[in-house]
Design a protein around this nucleic acid. Structure first.
Lengths: 136, 136
DNA sequence: TTATTAGTCTACAAAGATAGTAGGATATCT
DNA sequence: AGATATCCTACTATCTTTGTAGACTAATAA
């Protein structure tokens, strides 16, 4: 399951995608509209900023906004930033790979199965962007 | 990611699938062959027994064995028993469903996306059995 | 230049999950 | 009775999750 952090992040990012190119949005507004605990949201947005997903402006008229076109920001990449691996096993993870101790990957049924799951999952998540979070 | 518990469980279940109908297998043997901490494995197998996946016999000549044909035991059901939901969001889970507070499911982009992921995942895991864990 | 606004940063804390371990109780076989 | 092997409860240590607190910094406007 996605963590609360990721779930909140997607709600916030969806909101920011709707407001893309319309100037900075206050943390407090996102918090209010999306019912996300303010201080928790602060931390999440800050993290997304450090990872280059968001930009911000301080002071009056400030707030957060997407660093790039929402169509270019993949859902898969956000999950990886905040929750880590998408795969169900370390030995089938693209970005967080770790070797299995006990099985050799050439002949491990579980490995093959989870590789299939990973591919099916990424086929979806790598082709969905923040624009897909915007309700039409 | 699957927990260590699930990962160990699949190794043990794969081993028991290979030995199906060949009599009880000792916890100690599984622990040794699959390099799983003995006492941890005890707990896992006991849980799987309580859930009806395994049966056991005490005393000399005892041990664990599959309660039914490995071809009939779905990988998806084992994950649910030990780790809980397979879906990435509570609101798209079949067996652990919980309503979203903030989004309505009719028009939530994330909901739709994660529903797709769930379906793609289950399409694989619901059609794989313990026999698929046995190396050929 | 001072007050206000709004994000930045570090640290902390409570609760829960994870990954085990310990040791005695119970059932079964010889 | 004694050996074997699972059963069961409880415990612990560590990590992760889900936040909260409060001081700091930057930008704006009066």
């Amino acid at each position: 399951m996605l963590s609360k952090k990721s779930q909140y992040a997607f709600q916030a990012l969806g909101f920011l995608a709707e407001r893309y190119l319309q100037g900075p949005v206050l943390i407090a507004e996102i918090s209010r509209k999306k019912k996300i605990p303010l201080k928790f949201l602060e931390n999440i947005l800050l993290e997304l900023k450090k990872e280059g997903v968001l930009e911000s402006k301080k002071g009056k008229g400030g707030g957060y906004f997407l660093a790039s076109d929402p169509a270019k920001i993949k859902v898969a990449s956000i999950i990886r930033l905040l929750d880590g691996p998408i795969a169900m096993l370390p030995c089938v993870s693209l970005y967080f790979y770790e070797r299995c101790k006990n099985c050799n990957e050439k002949s491990c049924g579980l490995h093959d199965m989870m590789l299939e799951v990973r591919d099916a999952t990424l086929k979806i998540l790598e082709h969905r962007s923040l624009n897909d979070l915007v309700s039409k």
